[in-house]
């Protein structure tokens, strides 16, 4: 009836594009995105304190990202945090005696899980657990330590956790 169907097509395309953008925003930039499954396997790790670690935080070996944090939940009977790491299938040769630690990138940056490879000849499989873990460094504890120790000497130590090799002494 109408001589201009091009409008209808163009409008339809526009509306589709708009909804595609909306769907993209809703699924890829919100927590909805955390529910994902790819070619990966999962490994568990328990931490006394995960600090600010969040789901989808990166998992790294030697600074290279190999996967991300899939979920974090509290183990009620043991009162520690069970963190499920999702690791890319291609990194299937991680020794099973490797240790996991929660590091902070930068002084106030976000936290990630760093894996320190061990020397075992057997590798991690899906569902395995990393036994050796190191909790997150909390800034309150660091400041507390600084106040107690005092002196300019320890001010240089405040940059230590950033590099990720501070001892896991930060227990409450």
């Amino acid at each position: 009836m109408n001589p201009r169907p091009s409008y209808a097509i163009g409008t339809g395309l526009f509306i589709l594009l708009g909804f595609a953008a909306l769907a993209y925003l809703a699924t890829q930039t919100t927590s909805v995105a955390n529910i994902h499954s790819g070619d990966s396997y999962t490994v568990k790790a328990r931490f006394q304190n995960i600090g600010q670690l969040k789901a989808r935080a990166p998992v790294k070996i030697a600074g290279v990202r190999i996967g991300d944090v899939q979920s974090i939940r509290l183990e009620p009977q043991r009162m520690d945090a069970l963190v499920v790491l999702s690791i890319d299938k291609q990194y299937n040769d991680i020794p099973d005696d490797s240790s996991a630690a929660i590091f902070t990138s930068g002084l106030l940056g976000d936290q990630y899980v760093g894996i320190e490879p061990g020397g075992s000849p057997t590798f991690l499989k899906s569902g395995d657990e990393l036994v050796l873990t190191q909790s997150a460094m909390s800034i309150e504890n660091l400041i507390g330590k600084f106040m107690v120790n005092g002196g300019p000497k320890s001010s240089s130590a405040s940059s230590a956790p950033a590099s990720g090799d501070a001892p896991a002494s930060g227990k409450p």
């Binding site: 925003l25 930039t29 927590s31 789901a55 935080a57």
Partner: peptide
């Protein structure tokens, strides 16, 4: 991963989008 990870863990479908 940090870029997306922090975004997705903070942005809420209801309150923000």
């Amino acid at each position: 991963g940090t870029f997306w990870g922090n975004m997705t863990s903070t942005v809420s479908l209801h309150k923000d989008i």
